[in-house]
Design a protein around this nucleic acid. Structure first.
Lengths: 180, 180
DNA sequence: TGTACATCAGTGAACGCGCGTTCACTGATGTAC
DNA sequence: TGTACATCAGTGAACGCGCGTTCACTGATGTAC
């Protein structure tokens, strides 16, 4: 049942979309290749026609996921301001939807234990976010962007792990207009 | 080979110590009961004389680990200042030693997917840290503590996941004396 | 443009492995008298 | 204080399960002529 080259590209795109969402929702170890392939509408045996293994898929998914998530900051004509991005980032909607949210907040500690190529892709993706947040490129703006990004990631990581009352307090305490 | 009550308590303490370290080093799923029991000097079959299951162990380990980690902030006579705590938190040593470090930075996203009782224990532990950082108890101090804790957790999560150069930049950008 | 054939995307079964949990067993500990 | 016995901490083998990966197979696609 060979497919056309175009159909293969579509399969790959579906696998990547499923992986990007499921890794963020269930964690790297929690999202099995079988689950991902089933979500993409395929059986798990065909996986290796598209990727070398789980690490290869994870690297590709991180690359795509970071690009999508940072896009509002980077889209050329009317990019979102850093402050607006931070307001969205610190919203209850983002906390409730890890599968469509920031890869760093969903996967940070797991990536820290992952293969070098995975860490390299994560580093590249995070650097995109930093540059989107510090568009004037000055050293001061970059420092502010790094601190602001750390605050955002930490707040969402904590808000997702704790009970609701404390989660709301955390988001509120980190909202813009207070310091950076 | 029944052991004395005292010997049993010591076994439990060794299991808890091994679990606290290994969960933070390898993640919840990455640390198997077999590994933990072996590190504690026991065989894995005896685990269920001490805990009901992995979630029970994880809850107990989080409780103990948060208490230990927040101790410098809470020890009554001469507790560490919030600023000194933050300097230690944002050190390369903390980034390099997750097994002895902050449970929130090591396990946050995994706890977000864990059982309610695990999340409850995490919430309790984090609340201890917040109160240690905001000892005067004013609403403003609590907000500042929540924001500062979010910044610290995010910075260490990111620093552990990215390559060395960017990791150092992140820690430096979040060091005290800049805003909160 | 047609025809013959090699390629390969996808299927479904199989593999070896490590996991959390269970269980029969051992023998020192703790208890009842 | 001694003795008889029930308890139970720890052992080691076994269990069922899901994982990532491999492989023989199928048949439409793409290519060489």
């Amino acid at each position: 049942v060979r497919m056309s080259a175009e159909a293969k590209d579509q399969s790959r795109a579906r696998i990547l979309a499923a992986a990007g969402r499921m890794f963020r929702e269930r964690g790297i170890e929690g999202a099995s290749l079988g689950d991902i392939m089933r979500t993409a509408g395929l059986t798990h045996g065909g996986f290796y026609r598209h990727f070398d293994g789980k690490d290869d898929l994870l690297s590709a998914a991180l690359s795509q996921t970071f690009a999508e998530f940072a896009a509002p900051l980077l889209d050329a004509p009317a990019a979102e301001t850093a402050q607006r991005f931070r307001t969205r980032y610190l919203s209850p909607e983002h906390v409730a939807s890890p599968g469509a949210g920031c890869p760093a907040a969903a996967l940070g500690p797991e990536v820290a234990r992952a293969a070098p190529r995975v860490r390299a892709e994560f580093t590249k993706g995070l650097e995109q976010m930093v540059q989107g947040l510090a568009r004037d490129g000055s050293p001061g703006a970059r420092r502010e962007a790094l601190a602001s990004l750390s605050l955002m990631v930490g707040a969402v990581v904590l808000a997702r792990a704790v009970d609701n009352g404390l989660a709301e307090e955390i988001l509120s305490a980190c909202a813009p207009t207070r310091s950076t």
